[in-house]
Computed example of a mutant assay.
Amino acid sequence: MASSGSGVESPPPRTTEEDRLVRYGTSMFGGRPTFTLVRQETDSGGEWTLHELLPCEQAEARRDRLERGGRSLSITPVKELLIDVSGDNLQSKSEGWTWDEWAGAKVARLDPTRVRALQDVVREAIEDTPGKTDEVLRGGNGFVFLPESAGIRLAVAFRGVKPIQRIDRMRSLARGVARMSSEECYYWYAKCRSPSSPNGEKALRVLLTNHIE
């Protein structure tokens, strides 16, 4: 460390594997962030796309299971889906993680109307997320890595709101997801993505919006 008054600043502390585990929580992938939220600006406003991050082999296996059940899943190499919004800064924003042989399994893309309806639940879900969240909450293009618990909550909200047309129903679903416990979010996420539960998303919408005439 530089002596006091030398005018030479000490280098910033190096982020260790243990630091990253603390920041993103433990998971079956060694503490990696397991979701990413991407914001892209369009002529009509910002769009959000949520991806779950998986090893390519697992992402492809999930896609195959869904296709056997008549459903689809879009997967994209992680570097490819993030380079569009980060450009040459991807490495600096990856916080030491390497993404070779990893894919993003798309949860949902939301248009500007749905983005506005979910603004509060997204802000609350990611407020303690490591990294800079301003890029996805305000104008412009950017992304933020998410720990599993935040990603699961947003996945439930994104999948639930996707086909809804009325603003009042969108907002009701957003409020309902915001009030859910973490255990409830995990339950509904499993229901919404399971090939053996094709009506999981419909059941979620009935639960949270059916009181609105």
Rank of each mutant, 00 (worst) to 15 (best):
E9D: 09
E9H: 07
S10M: 12
S10A: 15
S10F: 06
P11K: 13
P13D: 09
R14V: 15
R14C: 11
T15F: 06
T15K: 09
T16G: 05
T16S: 15
T16M: 00
E18K: 13
E18I: 02
D19K: 11
R20C: 03
R20H: 06
L21V: 05
L21F: 07
L21E: 12
L21G: 06
L21N: 06
V22F: 13
R23K: 11
G25A: 00
G25H: 08
T26C: 04
T26A: 15
S27F: 08
S27A: 03
S27R: 04
M28I: 14
M28P: 04
M28R: 14
F29S: 05
F29A: 07
G31E: 06
G31K: 00
G31S: 00
R32V: 00
R32N: 02
R32P: 01
P33H: 02
F35D: 01
L37H: 07
L37F: 09
V38Y: 02
V38W: 00
R39G: 10
E41R: 13
E41Q: 15
T42L: 04
T42V: 05
T42E: 06
T42I: 02
T42N: 09
D43M: 12
D43E: 15
S44M: 03
S44G: 02
E47T: 13
T49L: 00
T49E: 03
L50D: 03
L50F: 02
H51T: 10
H51E: 08
H51W: 14
E52Y: 06
E52C: 09
E52A: 11
E52I: 00
L53N: 10
L54W: 11
L54C: 02
L54K: 07
P55Q: 05
P55D: 09
P55E: 10
C56I: 05
C56M: 08
C56S: 14
E57Y: 10
Q58M: 08
A59N: 04
E60L: 15
E60Q: 15
A61W: 01
R62I: 08
R63S: 08
R65T: 09
R65H: 09
L66W: 10
L66C: 01
R68D: 12
R68Y: 07
G69V: 05
G69I: 06
G69F: 10
G70F: 10
G70M: 05
G70E: 01
R71G: 09
R71D: 10
R71E: 11
L73V: 01
L73Q: 08
S74R: 14
S74L: 11
S74W: 03
I75E: 05
I75D: 04
T76V: 15
T76M: 08
T76E: 13
P77E: 11
K79D: 15
E80I: 06
E80K: 11
I83T: 12
D84T: 14
D84K: 15
D84S: 13
V85T: 04
V85A: 02
S86V: 04
G87P: 08
G87E: 04
N89C: 11
L90C: 02
L90T: 01
L90M: 07
L90N: 00
Q91I: 07
Q91P: 01
Q91Y: 05
S92M: 12
